[in-house]
Design a protein around this nucleic acid. Structure first.
Lengths: 201, 201
DNA sequence: ATCTAATTTTGCCAAATGGTTAAACTAATT
DNA sequence: AATTAGTTTAACCATTTGGCAAAATTAGAT
């Protein structure tokens, strides 16, 4: 059969690049075809429609994003270790893929119903980690606070700078992208220091 | 002259509603016209083009967003008071306008160059607050850390839950929006407690 | 070599969409 | 009432865009 390497995978990668950059509405099938160095009709041959191609990309991105989160929060780690590991590995991933969170969030914001199924299929269960937090609070290892607020704080501190990168870079680094990324490297450690300091008894 | 009340303002509000919900690319001029209960051609009469209408909306939203930030961080408050006030008033604003941050961030992410001018015209100058942080560290009032990381943490903790609201609501509240907003009410206080705990000597 | 099935390209279409034009309407002014 | 300037509408146009049908090509099987 006539194929250069793996056309389907090539298309998916090109589509991911374009969709992440422009969003579903902003992306053009022609642009995806160009990015993949193929003909526009070929996109429809492999994925029927723009929507189906988008769904494939979105699902792939979403599962990748959540798998990492699941591995950490369902791993039975202590609060300290989970936070350290989350900050370190998640910020590391985001330095390499800074556009993913904004992409997911925007599409979800625009049409929550349409993507609800895809989301719920991938959603990590964080209740084990919430119980660990609860337990350590009762043991007096960390201060008392709502476990959900602690988890929300951890996630916020890691992800927000990347979601808000364009503004953050302007306000704090006068537009210097490189300085932004250098600060993120240091932030892997700074975030867990900050959180652990805030919750130590 | 024949006008119902203030057509221009009506259009701007309708456009803001639709642009925030769908983004520039997802919004349709017809939908904006419907939202404003007017004819599509009237949009062009008042604002020439979709792009110009969008620019007007974006600029208005951006200045509103940054004015509040500027007032707090340029107000010469102590670190403790500035953080308390920022968390309280910003989260309060976001409870009322939860879609604004994601809107601004998405458009900025999609086309940073096109909006650079609008952004830089409204950008708050946070250097006074960074100096205040520096000073209080030297006086031993708060622990040593990069002032920019502290500011980034403050902003992240306040804004992220709203930007990531669709996912956060799913993961932490099983999709219950009301519980999300109740948690945000409590969060006004929780965020400043958390930060002040993290930086106290 | 021929046949067959999968893949790729060419050329095209119908619908959607941003935008324009000219006519119609409204209300203050004279 | 006639004029005039500003406002609103209806009808239409040009372009873009997602999508499709049919021809062309490729490569493995017989």
């Amino acid at each position: 059969m006539g194929e250069s390497k793996n056309t389907e995978e090539t298309i998916l990668e090109a589509a991911q690049t374009v969709f992440i950059r422009k969003g579903l509405d902003g992306a053009r099938m022609q642009e995806i075809a160009d990015e993949a160095n193929i003909n526009k009709a070929l996109l429809h041959y492999y994925f029927r429609s723009k929507q189906k191609l988008f769904d494939a990309v979105f699902s792939k991105v979403l599962s990748g994003t959540f798998n990492e989160m699941r591995a950490i929060f369902q791993g039975g780690l202590s609060v300290e270790h989970a936070i350290k590991r989350f900050a370190d590995s998640y910020i590391d991933t985001l330095i390499k893929n800074p556009y993913i969170p904004e992409f997911v969030i925007h599409e979800l914001n625009k049409d929550p119903e349409a993507l609800k199924k895809t989301v719920s299929q991938n959603l990590p269960d964080i209740s084990p980690f919430l119980r660990t937090i609860q337990k350590e609070m009762e043991e007096g290892k960390i201060i008392e606070m709502e476990p959900k607020q602690l988890l929300m704080n951890t996630i916020s501190l890691c992800i927000f700078p990347f979601v808000g990168r364009p503004i953050v870079t302007q306000i704090l680094f006068e537009g210097d992208e490189q300085e932004f990324y250098q600060t993120m490297e240091r932030r892997k450690k700074d975030v867990s220091d900050f959180i652990l300091n805030a919750i130590k008894t």
